[in-house]
């Protein structure tokens, strides 16, 4: 465990909790893509199946349980508790266009052709693109609430920090997982345009709105 990995995990945790608190406090999930959140729940579910088979550390297990719990709570709030505020009309990205190709790729390109391993690979690939419905929704409506942009920034930062962690681990431990690294690069690249807007607009006190 190095500092980049730890801050990456914490940034991920901040993002997830920030989103949950925002929905809870405002009693609304307006501007949030339910499809992205369902995909994140699917990502955690398929990746953390090893919670029962492979014990790593108390830290690891606790974080997995928190990520899973928060992710399911978020989906519950969007589709059940605060369903009336869900902006389904603008959440029009076709999730099957991501899930099906990613599933196929996980079958073809993996470390080992076993059910758990294919599901783990699926989760890595799916995570890399799961934010697309959310970004698409912002492009469609042309704006995002500031708190939503903080959520997105923390979520994007997490994988960027993991990239530095992997460089670190390659040098100091001779460790590298090509599947995770390539998917992590794709994931981080998808946030670049958003990072630019966040730094130039939101950090200067302006709301994130796109030109019409």
């Amino acid at each position: 465990m190095n500092v980049f990995r730890l801050t990456g995990d914490l940034s991920h945790l901040v993002a997830i909790i920030l989103l949950l608190l925002k929905i809870w406090k405002t009693r609304s999930c307006a501007g949030i893509s339910g499809k992205s959140q369902v995909m994140f729940a699917l990502v955690f579910t398929t990746r953390y199946l090893d919670l029962f088979t492979n014990f790593i550390s108390p830290y690891n297990s606790v974080m997995k349980v928190i990520y899973l719990g928060c992710s399911y709570a978020t989906v519950y709030m969007i589709y059940m508790k605060f369903k009336a505020s869900y902006d389904g009309n603008h959440d029009t990205f076709r999730a099957e266009f991501l899930i099906i190709p990613v599933g196929g790729l996980a079958f073809l390109v993996n470390h080992e052709f076993t059910p758990l391993e294919i599901l783990w690979t699926f989760s890595i690939y799916l995570e890399s693109v799961a934010i697309l419905p959310q970004l698409f929704m912002i492009t469609k409506t042309g704006e995002a609430e500031t708190i939503t942009t903080h959520y997105l920034f923390a979520l994007g930062l997490y994988r960027a920090l993991y990239l530095i962690n992997w460089i670190w681990r390659y040098y100091f431990e001779g460790f590298f997982d090509l599947i995770a690294i390539v998917a992590g690069c794709v994931q981080t690249i998808l946030y670049c345009d958003f990072f630019y807007l966040y730094i130039t607009k939101v950090l200067h006190g302006k709301k994130l709105s796109l030109p019409a």
């Binding site: 990995r5 995990d9 991920h12 090893d50 492979n54 790593i56 690891n60 974080m63 997995k64 990520y67 470390h111 783990w120 993991y162 962690n165 992997w166 001779g174 460790f175 590298f176 997982d177 090509l178 599947i179 995770a180």
Partner: peptide, 10 residues
């Protein structure tokens, strides 16, 4: 155990 797998990560 395969060293080149990110299974100890989140």
């Amino acid at each position: 155990k395969n060293k080149n797998k990110a299974k100890d990560e989140l």
